[in-house]
Write a protein that binds this DNA or RNA. Sequence first.
RNA 1: GGAGGGAUGGCAGAGCGGACGAAUGCGCGGCUCUUGAAAAGCCGUGGGACUCCGGUUCCCGUGGGUUCGAAUCCCACUCCCUCCGCCA
Length: 434
Amino acid sequence: MIDIRLVREQPDVVKTALGRRGIPPAEVDVLVALDADHRAALARQEALRAQVKALSRQVGEARKAKDEARASQLADESRRVGEEERGAAEETDRLADELRSLLLVTPNLPADDAPDGAGPEDNVVGRRWWPGMDAGRPEPEPAAHQRVPHWDVGAELGILDMPRGARMSGSMFPLFRGAGARLLRALTSLALDRHATAWEEIRPPTMVLTETLTSTGHLPKFADEAYHVERDDLWLIPTAEVPLASMHRGEILEEADLPVRLTAVTACFRREAGAAGRDTRGLLRVHEFDKVELFAFTTPAQAAEAHADMLARAEALLQALELPYRVVDLCTGDLGAWAKRTFDLEVYAPGADRWLEVSSVSWVGDYQARRATIRYRPADGGPTQLVHTLNGSALAWPRIWAAVVEWGRQEDGSVRLPEVLTPWFGPAPVIRAR
RNA sequence: GGAGGGAUGGCAGAGCGGACGAAUGCGCGGCUCUUGAAAAGCCGUGGGACUCCGGUUCCCGUGGGUUCGAAUCCCACUCCCUCCGCCA
């Protein structure tokens, strides 16, 4: 949630910021008006409440003084004021609900330095990297044998079995087998071992409460995108960001304990309702996939460094895996609802001939912290403040799997794996047909 | 799934219808004493909302209810503990 106080005190700042996302200023005016009404109602209610409390106290005193007549007279009056208060409370609650519902679907204010734009076409493509770039080698040109899409390579080698995945779960549920499954396991181990130096490894639950999914911003706005287990009213997480953000929900942390940095691998579940019919082949878009996530709780001052660190970690993995990639600075029109600034990492996949988003690293500011009331006590003893949260994938495996397999494909059809996977596949790692 | 017990401040733990946002202890912060430290003593120490900055109000697991008045009584739910059953 954005700060209602900022909306109240500097509505123009909020209008300008949300305007960059294409939100009309009238929506901010609605917030301002609702907030004013709510506060007026609250003041009325609290005045009545104070009256009830004062009268009740006097009832007790009258009783003690054995003045029954006065006691019952005061009680009658208190009852009358109490009824009035109940009416006022209903009005206050109604307005509070209305305000909160609106606030819950209002997106975050983008960072000042996030590029302006209307949609994905306006994203800013930044630096690029490819193996050997530092040594002055030119960008690699895929050979004919690398122009085979991973779903074909996977079928040839028997390491990806989409038809059987569909048999058990329907389309877009991949089934990896043999060396293909091992490759996923290797990638996860590689990533977690690297992160574990500074980031605490977590294995969170993958089914969560409605409140947990609301804290991050996924609910109520994006309910159609998530799988819901009706009988138990639990949701399957679309990313480990969701449970990790709730690690400290409702807590007040000490500044000395910040930043808190977490890493986790989980399955991620997405209905992809809005993308039906698009990217249906292979691993481009699937309903269930494994992803290693980084998540940080920081002070506002620590956020920039944490953001850079996350991005650097994701990039380091791509470099270790020898995959050409580019950094994309998301424009205000493509930024996720809760993000202030996001960098996507896209890997080029020569077989599918597409840039694939394999990581998204976001600075969320206090947007989630306010929804989840996650605060910290400053070391100087000042009042508690909301923390900042950041999240980033490092990395999402199916698309990495696809890129590794396509780039690695050799003339004889086997797949040469990056050297960094030697611990799992032996020296000069290769996947051959079974 | 069944039976019982519990949920109060950073922690432990009182309170069980009237000035209780809450005793006491521990912890933590400050001060006194001391060459310094310890000990001792004194003082302070939860979070939020609104505010005409005087205050007002909310929070004792969550949500309802009873009452002039609820941490205290009633109902429902959630979570934790013990025992039984089942189980990877």
